[in-house]
């Protein structure tokens, strides 16, 4: 077995041997699942009651064809902080609990440890994504079907979206790794992730719907890039397409770019420094 394969197995064992991963997974699945059920029921109820005031073929201003994708994509558009948190914690907990000492004793080539964390978080991020999509697709489709809206599960576009959503969550896992190595303070990393994803980016993206230059910058924000990659999002649905979006593959590259950029800067700074 190579040193890299060994480091990868160790990193996986590290994450699975503490409670954090399943706590985050439960939060993710419960959060996006409940939101998907709630929004699917809400839109379904609007669509069948007389309260729907939009043009024909729409529900609450949303084209019918977009209803199912937006509901399913809640897994990423709302759930993406969770794999990022898992990724950042996989790095910051090593600093916080001083476990970098045993880690680097076992694997003295530090780049190998970071590469192993990337691989493990890509896999776990994808699994988090798969679990979140099971929740949003399962509960969302049930909710839509209950009101006679087509969940579009027979369409290849839907399944392509699901596949891209899994990829987005895998990438968020490594964005988290990059952020963790860039900001090794555990509290700092968590605050940055929560503040940015729940506050800063939503405001910037809302502003991007009204201001041109903000739109140009806004679509390169990590959350916007992620939504572009997935191809549907509650945020873009709300801003009704006024903000321009990247192509899906461009969104993927931008998101990967953030992960690589953070990781490389971190690898050259905090990761290389003395472990005292």
């Amino acid at each position: 077995m190579t040193a890299f394969a060994a480091a990868t197995r160790a990193e996986l064992a590290k994450i699975l041997s503490t409670r954090m991963w399943w706590v985050l997974l439960i939060v993710l699945v419960a959060y996006v699942g409940l939101l998907a059920a709630g929004i699917a029921f809400g839109l379904g109820a609007l669509g069948t009651s007389g309260g729907n005031e939009g043009p024909p073929g729409t529900v609450a201003g949303l084209p019918l064809a977009l209803v199912a994708p937006v509901v399913f994509a809640l897994a990423t558009s709302v759930g993406y902080p969770l794999p990022a948190l898992l990724g950042s914690l996989s790095v910051t907990s090593e600093f916080r609990h001083k476990t970098l000492t045993p880690t680097f004793l076992a694997t003295p080539r530090r780049g190998g440890v970071l590469a192993a964390k990337w691989l493990v978080l890509l896999v776990l991020g994808a699994l988090f994504g798969a679990a979140a999509l099971v929740a949003t697709v399962g509960l969302g489709a049930a909710g839509l079907s209950a009101f006679g809206l087509d969940p579009q599960l027979g369409e290849s576009d839907t399944w392509a979206l699901i596949g891209r959503a899994v990829l987005a969550m895998a990438l968020w896992g490594v964005v988290g790794v990059g952020l963790g190595v860039l900001v090794p303070s555990q509290v700092g990393s968590i605050v940055i992730i929560l503040a940015f994803t729940q506050f800063v980016e939503p405001i910037l993206r809302t502003a991007a719907g009204f201001v041109d230059w903000a739109g140009e910058v806004g679509r390169f924000l990590p959350g916007a890039a992620s939504d572009a990659l997935v191809g549907a999002s509650i945020y873009t649905a709300i801003s009704a397409g006024t903000a321009s979006q990247l192509e899906w593959w461009q969104g993927g590259i931008v998101l990967l770019g953030y992960a690589v950029l953070f990781t490389v800067i971190g690898a050259l700074t905090t990761w290389r420094s003395d472990v005292t």
Partner: peptide, 18 residues
């Protein structure tokens, strides 16, 4: 230098794997 949430056995297993 131990993660408080990990058992002694898990700590050693992680090191053995790595």
């Amino acid at each position: 230098s131990f993660h408080p949430g990990r058992s002694a056995r898990e700590h050693l297993r992680v090191l053995a794997l790595g």
